[in-house]
């Protein structure tokens, strides 16, 4: 399966201490499944992913719900609810 690029923003990036990672999610995985895989890494990952309800996601630069399948997407972004304006 194609590698998935994962980008982090705001406090998600700060807790993890990285801007991005590459992962190869299992076939059929959803965004929430990838969040669980990342949480299992422990440390800052576990801290940032501890409460998925606090996270929002975009697949290939489109906002999606956490139960969305990764499908053929190349880029997943994980971040807190947005606060622009």
């Amino acid at each position: 399966m194609a590698e998935l690029s994962i980008l982090y923003f705001a406090w998600v990036r700060e807790m993890i201490g990285r801007d991005e990672d590459m992962v190869a999610p299992p076939p059929g995985a959803s965004v929430a499944d990838v969040i669980a895989l990342l949480a299992a890494r422990g440390g800052g990952y576990a801290q940032a992913m501890a409460r998925p309800e606090k996270l929002r996601a975009a697949l290939d630069q489109n906002f999606v719900a956490l139960d969305t399948p990764i499908g053929n997407a190349r880029e997943l972004a994980l971040f807190p609810p947005v606060t622009g304006g």
Partner: peptide, 20 residues
């Protein structure tokens, strides 16, 4: 723009602390 665009604000305070 406040609720549907990917921006995040972090506040920086005089005492050196920060808060998303």
């Amino acid at each position: 723009l406040k609720s549907h665009a990917p921006f995040w604000k972090q506040e920086h305070f005089a005492d050196g602390s920060t808060r998303w």
